[in-house]
Design a protein around this nucleic acid. Structure first.
Lengths: 342, 342
DNA sequence: CTGAAAGCGCTTACAG
DNA sequence: CTGAAAGCGCTTACAG
């Protein structure tokens, strides 16, 4: 194509990149014409090799079909595409090995940044290896951003639901609930641990002792959230409300409660966390804690850009979450959920 | 790192790639040790340049937060990751320029394939330019796969809902519905056009003339689906059932109907197409046509792999879709929806 | 079994 | 204003 235009490849490069190096008008036109004729597509690989920039960022999520994650990816992508970046989406399914494998791959691809959307796993070996990989990426000039609690000392923006979880518990207690069941996420996931701690602290403030008998894990998953509710029901310890530490589990929990013949919220109140789009379409619409997912994604990508621009930071930024009261929570019934069961 | 191991870069390459070119055992260990020590991360860019393979595929969707698309991406990613491919996800929002821009970028990145998940737009200029870009990508050795109806002659796997739409209409007519409203998608989108044609053909089979007065566009979008129902209601032409050409619109339609005080399905039956996960959690659960999204994604990526393996094909494969009857459709009421409105 | 060297397609000082 | 050439980090015939 340089031959077609009758110029050197250096000149071609200059006009294609609109470099500020001067190029003769007539030469420029000749190059542009030749480029159009042969349908020239500049090779980003070699360009990346030569310039050290790939215009790609990697994003590691739990599962792209989970709204929590795809909403955040949407936010990331909004600003990424605005700035000419392409996004590599990697679903790790919270598997440490899968995640490490992806990090290695993204590094090899010379992504300019990796954004971790999901919560940090808490396995020591994994943390060590992950930190080494991330250090390597940083040395290559890459940026790292974490959008969830983690044990790694990396720049991060974290949705902090603690305060809103407190408000949620206040709300329930005001409605007369004292026997509040808790459906947790994966025990090795920091997000779940933190949310559970916030819940425990909140009920204690009301003089209620967190009761292991009213607690089950739904692994942040819809089906397992449903199973957790059933387990709690089968355990026989009465409760009038169930707090699910994410909305996916709350969806499952709600369906399971209905399937057991419980009316929500008359027989049992149910609340979640995240405020996924689906919560509005449930019957009843779900009381939950709003995590500003799209904004979180946008902020995350902006932090990436700032770092690539030379910003050095280890500052941790918290993002406020708000209680959203809808119709799945109401006055506690006289008889508790278990007995109310038909 | 070659220096650290005291060998040539050629030798390093051979052991890192586990090439079948013989390498001395002791040399191999030395290289591996050096690699571990410096935390060596092979540069995929240069590797891609030298070998002409990038191990990436681009996927163009409408919007990653739309379940229809992220479910398909999930299927693609399942087999892509199995085969060591990374996935670049591009949301075009059905904008022709955005889509073309992404195609150019993916080409520049030398993606080995582009999978188009969404339906084809039908703008002549766009089609021309797109086809040129795709031809370019093919010449570079890339594969193309379309997972929706399109006017382009490229390998494709298409979910064919026509037959199931016919069954849906039969189902409604059997329930006594004759005044059936239709909420369509974007008029320039082939998927929407085809589904509408299938609907028209089906009602005609029952001696019903498609009525423009009972037809509105919701642009495949939740909010606009709701607006479309309201418009139909306001138009004053009575109907006892509304068929939405995708589930997103059906969700909006259902909420709007309830907001207007209509009972579903007693006052009006509502049906969608796609069988998104959310349809199960609605009240009432939605009657719809199941499009096997995840399988479609998997099949799409398999077709990519086959093409990269040298398969030459222009064959069009259709994927069967099935009617799923749930609770949002029932016997037609005596009085039609409009009058039933409170 | 090992290395030197050409080549992948660019960018970018450096000369002219 | 233009070109020749080094360099980005690999792979892979080609010699030895």
């Amino acid at each position: 194509m340089a031959r077609l235009a009758g110029v050197s490849i250096g000149t071609v490069s200059r006009v294609i990149n609109n470099s500020d190096h001067p190029v003769g008008e007539e030469t420029r036109t000749r190059v542009l014409e030749a480029a159009a004729k042969v349908d020239y597509s500049p090779n980003e690989l070699s360009r990346g090799l030569a310039r050290g920039r790939t215009h790609t960022v990697g994003v590691i999520v739990h599962d792209i079909t989970d709204s929590y994650f795809n909403e955040i990816v949407r936010g990331i992508d909004d600003v990424a595409s605005e700035h000419g970046y392409l996004v590599l989406v990697c679903s790790s399914y919270r598997d440490a090995d899968r995640e490490l494998e992806y990090v290695r791959k993204l590094r090899s691809q010379r992504c300019e940044a990796i954004i971790f959307v999901g919560g940090g796993l808490r396995f020591p070996d994994y943390l060590l290896e992950l930190d080494a990989q991330l250090e390597g990426l940083c040395k290559q000039g890459g940026a790292i951003v974490m959008l969830a609690p983690t044990d790694l000392a990396r720049p991060r923006i974290i949705p902090d639901a603690s305060r809103a979880i407190g408000e949620l518990v206040d709300h329930l207690v005001q409605l007369g609930h004292r026997d509040i069941a808790l459906i947790e996420g994966p025990p090795h996931l920091k997000t779940s641990v933190q949310r559970a701690e916030a819940f425990d602290a909140a009920v204690r403030r009301h003089g209620i002792d967190p009761d292991p008998g009213r607690r089950a894990s739904g692994h942040f998953d819809r089906e397992q959230g449903a199973a957790a509710l059933e387990e709690l029901l089968d355990r026989g310890k009465p409760f009038t409300a169930a707090v699910c530490l994410n909305d996916q589990m709350a969806v499952g929990c709600l369906m399971a409660a209905k399937a057991r013949g419980l009316r929500v919220p008359q027989d049992v109140s149910i609340a979640g966390i995240d405020d996924l789009p689906v919560t509005r379409y449930l019957d009843p619409p779900l009381t939950t804690v709003r995590v500003p997912m799209r904004e979180l994604g946008r902020a995350g990508m902006h932090l990436v850009l700032a770092q690539l621009d030379g910003l050095r930071t280890r500052r941790v930024r918290n993002v406020r979450c708000e209680l959203v009261v809808r119709e799945s929570t109401a006055q506690a019934p006289r008889t508790s959920a278990r007995r109310g069961q038909r």
